[in-house]
Design a protein around this nucleic acid. Structure first.
Lengths: 110, 110
DNA sequence: TTTATTCATTGCAATATTGCGATAAATGTG
DNA sequence: CACATTTATCGCAATATTGCAATGAATAAA
C-alpha cells in the first residue's frame, strides 16, 4: 500500500528507522558532510556544492530540520545552517546502540 | 522525479545512504533485532513475530539479502535466515565512520 | 520605493516503496 | 504419486519520495 504500518512496531524500532531513513539519501549525507566540514554554511553554498536545484536542497534541509539534526538562522538575506550538535550526539547514540548488537553464538547460525 | 541522482554524489555518499536506507524501515529493524536475538531463525517465525504478511516479510528479507546483511540457507522445507556477521561488521564500520564526525569550531555556528 | 538576492513553499510529473492476495516452486510426508 | 508446508515471486493498489519550475516572502541595496 505504500504505507508503513508503524503501529505494529515498537517505539524504538520506529525511532531507529526514522533516523536511518533521513540519512538514507545521498543528498542528505552530502549536506551533513558539508556542514561538518564547514562548521556552518549558507543554503546557496549547498546548492552550488551539491548540484541539485535550490528547491530540492531546501526540501532535504527541511527533512533534516524536522529530525532536529540541522538548524537554520536567518542572516540578512541568506540563511545560515549548521548541525544541531546535541541532536547529532543523541541520534549517534541510538544508532550505535543498534549497531552494537552481536551474533553471540555463531554455531547456531546456518 | 522520484529518481535519486546517484551519479552526482561520491561513491561513499551513495554507500552510506544505501546502507541507511535499508535500515530505514521498522520492519527491517525488527527483522535484524529478531535475528540477533535468536542467532538464527526461520522465515515463518518472523511472519508470526512481526505481524506482516508472509509476502511482505519475504520482500524485506530480499532487501536485506541484497545488501548482504542476511543470508538464508534452505533447511528442508523451510529457510533458515541469519545475520552475515562479516557484512554487519563492515556496514557498522561505514556508519560509525560517518557518525563520528564532529563539529569542531562551534563559534562559527549560528 | 523599486529592484535584486536568497530561501521557502506550492504544484506537478516521474519513480520508488510498501503491503498483500494469488500463485509458483521446492521440499517433505503419506 | 498426491498432498501439505514453506518461501519466493508476480501483479496490483495505495502511498511516499525525489526533483524541479514557478512563485511567494523576506531582507538588502540602490
Amino acid at each position: 500500500m505504500g504505507l508503513s504500518k508503524t503501529e505494529i512496531f515498537t517505539k524504538e524500532q520506529n525511532h531507529i528507522a526514522s533516523i536511518a531513513k533521513v540519512i538514507g539519501h545521498p543528498a542528505r549525507v552530502a549536506i551533513l558532510q558539508h556542514l561538518f566540514k564547514m562548521d556552518s554554511c549558507i543554503c546557496g553554498d549547498l546548492v552550488e556544492e551539491i548540484g541539485l536545484a535550490q528547491a530540492t536542497i531546501s526540501q532535504h534541509l527541511k527533512e533534516l530540520k524536522a529530525l532536529g539534526l540541522v538548524k537554520g538562522n536567518v542572516e540578512g538575506q541568506s540563511v545560515c545552517y549548521c548541525i544541531e550538535k546535541s541532536k547529532w550526539v543523541e541520534i549517534k547514540k541510538v544508532l550505535l546502540n543498534f549497531l552494537d548488537q552481536d551474533v553471540t553464538d555463531i554455531t547456531k547460525c546456518c
